[in-house]
Write a protein that binds this DNA or RNA. Structure first.
Length: 207
DNA sequence: CGAAAGATCCCCT
DNA sequence: GGGGATCTTTCGA
């Protein structure tokens, strides 16, 4: 099973839920860094009012969304870099925004990249990219399997419970309240969650 | 060419 | 929980 086979086999919202617990790794110049995916959002393509490809919008900056499943889509907003993966066949511009990681590799390097430590290291889409040390568009439009970024083809850990909620900072449009944000319940690296909701014995995993 | 919006972050109360 | 920083992209004149 390759990571490309993992995608394009279901609807993007199902793929997003199945992606939780997979390990994202980056072969960075300073060493291997990465962690388990604990939070992600689905963007459902031309009919989704919050998607960059809404109504078929297409330009050099979002071209990666139109690539085959497993294509890396990097964009920037407010001076921060974000990491998406195209999930469907070429020409069907749907994708997943990776929003938070639980560090498993190179935590020291990530702390140096971020100049801080603790749960704030990777609990947001811009934060995790800064922690990995990615601050350019160099990997945009590359295939995951042919780049220094990789996602494990299967789960490393099973979420005990997955919560679905409206997407973060999607505040207008017909799809603004759709529950397309998915995260591991109780994991302290999920962005914007309250301390009292954290499960610090299991971090939300079954194994 | 200027302006405004935006899938965010950090620091302060 | 709120406001300012920051900067790329897009759209309208």
């Amino acid at each position: 099973m390759t990571i490309e086979n993992f995608f394009a086999k279901a609807t993007t919202d199902i793929i997003t839920q199945n992606l939780l617990g997979h390990e994202l790794l980056y072969q960075s110049p300073k060493g291997v860094v990465g962690g388990l995916i604990v939070e992600a959002e689905s963007y459902m393509g031309i009919k989704d009012s919050a998607a960059h490809s809404f109504q078929g919008r297409r330009s050099p900056s979002n071209e990666a969304l139109y690539g085959p499943a497993g294509t890396i889509y990097i964009y920037s907003i407010y001076g921060h870099y974000m990491f998406d993966i195209a999930t469907q066949a070429a020409g069907e511009p749907q994708g997943i925004l990776i929003r938070a990681l639980q560090p498993t590799q190179g935590e020291k390097i990530m702390e140096q990249n971020r100049h801080l430590n603790g749960y704030n290291l990777t609990n947001g889409p811009g934060k995790l990219m800064a922690a990995l040390g990615i601050n350019s568009f160099a990997l945009n439009q590359q295939l995951l399997s042919q780049s220094p970024l990789s996602v494990s083809p299967q789960r490393k850990k099973e979420p005990r419970r997955i919560i679905a909620a409206p997407r973060v900072n999607v505040s207008a449009g017909a799809w603004q309240n759709r529950p397309l944000r998915f995260y591991v319940a109780g994991n302290p690296y999920v962005s914007g969650t309250a301390k009292r909701s954290w499960e610090l014995s299991t971090w939300g995993w079954l194994n």
